Amino acid sequence: MSSLQKSILKSKLPPTGLNCGGVPSRALQRKRDYDPILWSPYFDHSEDVEVGENTFHVYSVGTEGPTLVLLHGGGYSGLTWAEFTKCIVTMVVCRVMAIDLRGHGDSHTTNEEDLSADTLALDVAGIIESVSDDQTPIILVGHSMGGAVAVKAAPLITNLAGVVVIDVVEGTAMDALTSMQSFLRSRPSSFNSISQAIEWCVRSGQIRNAQSAKVSVPGQIKNIKTGKLATHDIESLSSDPNHENEVEDVIHREDIIQEEETSNMPPPPHSNKSEKKNYAWRIDLAKTEQHWSGWFKGLSAAFLNIPSPKMLLLAGVDRLDRELTVGQMQGKFQMQVLPACGHAVHEDVPDKVAEAVATFMVRHKFAEPASEFTRTFPAC
């Protein structure tokens, strides 16, 4: 194509950065990419389970096969498993139950601050006892803090079939605790909208899969005015005629802190700009510091001592500590490393995690395959 032809074609295009209506295309792109999604395309039920004086929120799907009990990490909610659930139910015949743990999501307890590993494990055992019979095999699947809770809860489950722990290793976790407060200070404390919170989580690298973030992040933030979880606002936003026409402030690159930048990061500077903040984090993780070491101390030995079949999924082999390295070489558990993802492995690559878990379940004859899927080759 000649330079003259290129010039003619270019002259017929709208100015760069604008759409035909004159609105910055970046703003429209942001609205299109980061609008929140309801839980309903992923789960059949969203309901409360009463355990004593406490109310735990549970998302579930399926009526046959073993039950996968999914336990999220600190600060997340049961919705973090949405994309994983969508994948796993197409691979094996199973039921899925994703729990909002104490102090998280839509669960409400008499003591929201008691996030000790023992209390969380007792909560999980109580929920399972309330909704499941003794005949249904239970596979505990936990990410990060949820992985530690799964290991702690395993001895309390009489019909336990297996345990899957995702990206949490005692040695690495204990080392990371020293920089955790710096990381938490690096996060914005509030957001103008649900979409802005989703954008921040994606662009900061906390969740690298935008589709997953759109359903997951609303379970992590609450409406400052009503105190309710942001998930309750999604339907009203979609029915608001003014919502589609809103153009919010774009989050610029300098406001984004990548994962690798969070160590030794000073607190973000205070902004004098007057902004209306509508959403804040559901849980203040900085105030849970007293429980951090209790989540992970002794985790490796406890994991290795679980008599049921177990699997460890990691985002990188460098996360393996000495005790687990020895155990892996002795064949005490199955290990799978999933590259090209961050700490939220099950959100970043839900299909790969689902394939690994489905292979684990079929290999140990916990479940029947529902379809042909790519069988992952275990590292052990």
Rank of each mutant, 00 (worst) to 15 (best):
G105T: 12
A121N: 01
C87I: 00
S238M: 14
A302T: 07
K12W: 15
P268D: 03
E347I: 11
G162W: 13
G126R: 07
S190T: 14
S2E: 10
V215P: 00
T376F: 08
I194M: 07
A354C: 12
F43Y: 14
H108D: 10
F333R: 05
W295I: 03
H252L: 10
S7L: 13
M91E: 07
L68F: 13
F303H: 05
K297E: 08
D175G: 06
A280K: 10
A125Y: 09
G162S: 08
Q211K: 14
A176Q: 05
L13V: 11
Y34F: 14
V163R: 02
L122I: 02
G294P: 05
W281V: 05
F377A: 07
P369N: 03
R185S: 12
D167H: 08
P137G: 02
I139H: 01
V92F: 04
V49F: 15
N54E: 12
V337T: 15
Q220G: 00
H364A: 07
K152M: 04
R363A: 07
T63Y: 00
I127T: 04
A121I: 06
G227H: 04
L115I: 08
L177C: 06
V202G: 02
L312E: 03
M180T: 14
I127W: 10
S25I: 14
V169D: 03
I8N: 01
H291E: 03
C87N: 05
S300M: 06
T376R: 12
N19G: 06
Y59M: 05
K152I: 05
P378Q: 09
K225Y: 13
I99T: 00
P137A: 02
E372T: 13
Q5S: 10
E254H: 14
D233M: 11
E355I: 10
A213F: 00
Q334Y: 15
E368K: 15
K310E: 07
E259R: 10
L38E: 11
E323Q: 11
I157E: 03
S236F: 14
L28M: 05
A344R: 10
L18Q: 06
H72F: 09
F373G: 00
D233H: 10
L177A: 04
T376E: 11
N305P: 04
G147K: 06
L120V: 04
T359Q: 13
L79A: 09
S274K: 15
S144W: 06
P269A: 11
D118A: 09
S212F: 09
A358G: 06
V349H: 07
S274E: 12
S132K: 06
S130I: 06
D133L: 02
D48M: 11
D106M: 12
M335Y: 07
A154W: 04
E261I: 05
A354G: 09
E129K: 14
E235A: 11
L314P: 03
C380S: 15
N19W: 11
L177D: 02
L304T: 07
K225R: 10
K152T: 09
Q5E: 15
D48Y: 15
G62I: 12
P41D: 04
E129T: 15
D33N: 12
S130L: 01
I251Q: 02
S189K: 14
D44E: 14
Q196G: 06
D118P: 01
G227N: 03
Q328I: 12
V51C: 04
A173S: 12
L299C: 02
E244V: 15
F183M: 11
C20D: 09
E64M: 11
T359W: 14
F84K: 01
A117F: 02
L304V: 09
A148Y: 01
E260N: 13
S190Q: 11
A98I: 07
